[in-house]
Write a protein that binds this DNA or RNA. Structure first.
Length: 617
RNA sequence: GCCCCGGUAGCUCAGUUGGAUAGAGCACCCGCCUUCUAAGCGGGUGGUCGGCGGUUCGAAUCCGCCCCGGGGCGCCA
């Protein structure tokens, strides 16, 4: 867990400067270097920033916190940046920055290509395991989370300047796929014209046909021989189907070209829905991200061998297991029949991701129910030393276990008809409702969208609908179960994706109507005369820190929280500060520049969620 | 039985990692469009932060014990 790198700090953020100065002041007073705990003030009446370190330090040293705060403040050199500093309450130091200081920082921010995000100190890659579909299965709403959370994190790390690998660990290998394949072959299916529904149907059919649940139960409960014989006759077709499936699996594993070709076709058909969903969702997942279970098939024997050789695995009841000192149940890496398990594949994947992809951070975006499994896999990987990059740097393995998606009744989501809600159903509905709403509003002759062709309205509608879905999902606590309510998700008022898009569209509209060139706007000096302008500016300056925080904590909801606050502050500014009809030309240009800066940050923040920001809506 | 994750306004959720008077949205009530998009803004009603105890200047946040809900526990993935 120890990251040797010092956390970079955003140069544009005044908090960085305050941190430097108060760190020095504290060192001057107590002789040691500690975190001064600079925080944005919770309440504007206390100033812009607060320094919280004095109280904790006073406790340690058994001195008076207010007196210590006073001492720190006296030795802090703030003349050029603060207009007011004072000790308040039990020992807070409140700092109000000068207008010039904030304007300088803002100017710096507007010239930064990365919106103030510092270059990464860790040269290694970040690997994000996302999506996780299974061949022959429909994408359901759970895949929405695994896909958009993973994509959003990938985008955040790209913004932080890291090399990112999006890994789609498809379930494309093993008996279930062989069963489906065998059934399709028995039914002489036309592989050239297969649809996902055909695959899904075959998959379910194969599951039913090979099910021997009653027979298994009869053995388990030691039913009489007569009863068992009865079941055996009844289940003869299931036995035959299973035998067929196993033969198909052997042919697949041994590389039978005919079978492999058909298997590839199954994957192709399955993945087309993934790519389509990815396009709709503005998620960067394509064929280049496919690295499924089959990719690791030749490495599984090596995994077991490595663990056996190092003495970390032992034989137990005919199977190979990795025992742990602190828990009863071991990790099973090879079945008694010699077959491998998903833990084996996951271990091979860990090794690949740290050593070959050079990931110093590997994030698994997989639902929370697999928490125990990943704990075991990661611990096993650590004990054998596979949590290392190619140059020996330590790699952090994280399972980001997200909560289940529930219906309004708090049970797994269903449609009205009781069928499982597929991802496609959800996205279609979102785009449809978004388009209906945009079209309805465009009917108003005063609407900026009035008169646009319906294709354009549909484009905006889809952006709005998808924004609603993504924002609702990403802006909450990822680890919690979450109640899916389309009516609330596609709402256009309040704390929603469209609320953010709306703020962006308002800014775009102002900039377009100003008649000024981008060059003229960027050349104008900032002038923060109103409180609403200052509040907006201070929040813009925090963007980089927010991005760094998301990289550190993997909490995508911080992006949403930041953007909602930004939009609120912009709306407050919009309400109280006329831009195009400002009192004078200088103020007009200064406000236009503030608008341009806000727009850039808002659009960049939305891009961290993969949300499109239309200029009109 | 063991382990993990939750419990905050009527509903859905935030809460910047221990900070100042616990905040939004929906719903409900009042106000703001001859002025840059009212998908907006301002105000109001609404709280035993599951319960009890502890740690300290300070707890929704940390520690302990309970209550309630969800999930996971060897040859499926």
């Amino acid at each position: 867990m120890t990251q040797p790198v010092t956390t970079p700090r955003p140069a544009c953020d005044p908090a960085t400067e305050l941190d430097v100065r108060f760190r020095a002041a504290i060192r001057a007073v107590i002789g040691t270097e500690v975190d001064p705990q600079i925080r944005p003030s919770g309440n504007a009446k206390f100033g812009d920033f607060q320094v919280n370190a004095a109280m904790a330090l006073a406790k340690e040293r058994g001195t008076n916190p207010r007196a210590l705060a006073e001492e720190i403040l006296q030795s802090a050199d703030l003349a050029d940046i603060a207009e007011k500093c004072e000790v308040a309450g039990p020992g807070f130091v409140n700092v109000t920055l000068t207008r010039a200081c904030i304007e300088r920082a803002l100017t710096k921010l507007s010239m930064s290509e990365t919106l103030g995000v510092p270059a990464p100190t860790d040269p290694h890659a970040v690997v994000v395991d996302l999506c996780g579909v299974n061949v022959a299965k429909q994408m359901h709403v759970g895949h929405l989370r695994a896909t958009i959370i993973g994509d959003s994190l990938a985008r955040v790390f790209e913004r932080l300047g890291r090399k990112v690998w999006r890994e789609n660990h498809l379930g494309d290998w093993g008996l279930p796929i062989a069963m489906t394949l065998a059934k399709l072959l028995r039914e002489k299916a036309d592989f050239a014209r297969l649809t996902l529904d055909d695959l899904n149907h075959a998959y379910r059919g194969a599951q039913r046909e090979t099910s021997t649940a009653d027979l298994d139960a009869a053995y388990e409960f030691h039913c009489g021989p007569h009863r068992i014989a009865e079941f055996e006759v009844q289940y003869e077709p299931a036995r035959i189907a299973m035998e067929d499936a196993k033969k198909t699996l052997v042919r697949l594993q041994s590389g039978d070209t005919e079978i492999v070709r058909r298997w590839e076709r199954l994957i192709e058909v399955t993945m087309e829905q993934v790519y389509e969903a990815a396009r709709t969702l503005h998620v960067k997942v394509g064929p280049e991200n496919n690295r499924g279970e089959s990719f690791f098939r030749d490495r599984l024997g090596g995994v077991v061998e490595a663990f056996a050789k190092s003495g970390l695995a032992k034989s137990d009841r005919g199977a190979m297991v990795v025992p742990f000192a602190d828990r009863e149940r071991p990790l099973l890496i090879q079945k008694s029949d010699g077959g491998f398990l998903y833990a084996t594949t996951d271990l091979a994947a860990v090794r690949f991701r740290t050593y070959e992809l050079d990931g110093s951070l590997v994030v698994y975006v997989v639902d929370a129910r697999q928490r125990d499994h990943f704990r075991d896999v990661f611990d096993a990987a650590r004990t054998i030393g596979w949590n290392k990059t190619s140059d020996g740097a330590e790699s952090t393995l994280v399972h980001l276990g997200f909560g289940a998606v529930l219906g309004p009744d708090k049970k797994p989501l269903k449609t009205r008809s009781g069928e499982n809600f597929t991802l496609k159903d959800l996205l279609d509905e979102a785009c449809e409702r978004g388009t209906a709403e945009v079209t309805r509003r465009a009917a108003d002759p005063n609407a900026p969208t009035h008169g646009l062709p319906s294709s354009e309205l549909a484009k905006i509608g889809a952006a709005v609908g998808i924004a609603a879905v993504k924002y609702a999902d990403l802006s909450g606590d990822l680890t919690k179960d979450y109640v899916f309510d389309l009516d609330r998700m596609i709402a256009f008022e309040g704390d929603t994706g469209p609320y953010l898009q709306y703020a962006h569209a308002r800014i775009a509209s102002i900039l377009a109507k100003s008649g000024e060139t981008h060059a003229a706007i960027v050349a104008a000096p900032f002038a923060l005369s109103e409180p609403a302008e200052k509040a907006l500016a201070l929040h813009l300056l925090r963007y980089a820190q927010m991005a760094l925080d998301v990289g550190r904590t993997l909490e995508t909801n911080r992006v949403g929280l930041y953007l909602r606050t930004l939009a609120e502050l912009f709306n407050a500014f919009y309400q109280s500060c006329p831009v195009l009809k400002a009192d004078d030309a200088t103020t007009r240009l200064a406000r236009l520049r503030l608008c341009a800066m806000t727009r850039a940050v808002l659009a960049d923040g939305l891009s961290l969620y993969g949300i499109v920001a239309p200029d009109r809506m």
